[in-house]
Amino acid sequence: MWTSKPHRREVAVDEDSDGEGLVAHFPAHASEPVAAMTFDPSGTLLLTACRLGHNFHVFRVMAHPVCSSQGALHHLYTLHRGDTTATVQDMCFTQDSRWVAVSTLRGTTHVFPVTPYGGKL
């Protein structure tokens, strides 16, 4: 079963912010802006898509229970869709977070296996 995704929201991070409630601040794609992102049902895995729709990164987000600045983020996987540019339309995890589906405006959906704790697929 696939999770349904709530409506997309834009969040602005102010450089002068004191970081209250901030879990992690990091460049998800080094040379490109992030075009889409979604969390798994548990809120511990984050999937990001690059603007060109080629690469998707899976991160494990570990919030600190007391201090948000002490949270950790681990890159687990880079998933690759193809070499043609495509606009990502939707992304979602299965309920057990073992699969990721990415749909593009090209009319394709790509399904990737994911091991939530990292390691070989």
Score class of each variant (00 low, 15 high):
residue 95 Q to E: 15
residue 116 P to K: 08
residue 102 V to T: 07
residue 40 D to C: 09
residue 78 T to M: 06
residue 12 A to V: 14
residue 68 S to D: 15
residue 117 Y to V: 12
residue 69 S to R: 12
residue 99 W to Y: 06
residue 7 H to K: 11
residue 87 T to K: 12
residue 98 R to F: 03
residue 69 S to Q: 14
residue 11 V to P: 00
residue 79 L to T: 01
residue 80 H to I: 08
residue 5 K to R: 13
residue 42 S to A: 14
residue 39 F to N: 05
residue 68 S to A: 12
residue 110 H to G: 00
residue 24 A to M: 01
residue 110 H to A: 07
residue 52 L to K: 11
residue 52 L to R: 12
residue 12 A to E: 11
residue 61 V to I: 15
residue 31 S to H: 08
residue 59 F to P: 05
residue 34 V to A: 02
residue 15 E to L: 05
residue 44 T to F: 01
residue 119 G to C: 07
residue 21 G to C: 07
residue 102 V to L: 06
residue 35 A to W: 02
residue 82 G to E: 09
residue 44 T to S: 10
residue 17 S to E: 13
residue 69 S to D: 11
residue 19 G to Q: 02
residue 3 T to R: 09
residue 78 T to E: 04
residue 13 V to S: 07
residue 87 T to A: 12
residue 87 T to V: 13
residue 71 G to E: 02
residue 68 S to C: 15
residue 30 A to N: 02
residue 18 D to S: 08
residue 95 Q to Y: 12
residue 75 H to Y: 10
residue 80 H to W: 08
residue 32 E to V: 07
residue 56 F to T: 03
residue 63 A to S: 13
residue 23 V to Q: 04
residue 31 S to Y: 08
residue 71 G to V: 02
residue 63 A to V: 04
residue 25 H to G: 00
residue 88 V to T: 15
residue 31 S to D: 11
residue 62 M to L: 09
residue 74 H to D: 10
residue 8 R to P: 01
residue 79 L to I: 00
residue 101 A to P: 00
residue 15 E to N: 02
residue 51 R to D: 10
residue 30 A to M: 04
residue 95 Q to G: 06
residue 36 A to Q: 06
residue 17 S to M: 10
residue 26 F to L: 14
residue 32 E to Q: 15
residue 64 H to E: 06
residue 113 P to H: 00
residue 3 T to E: 14
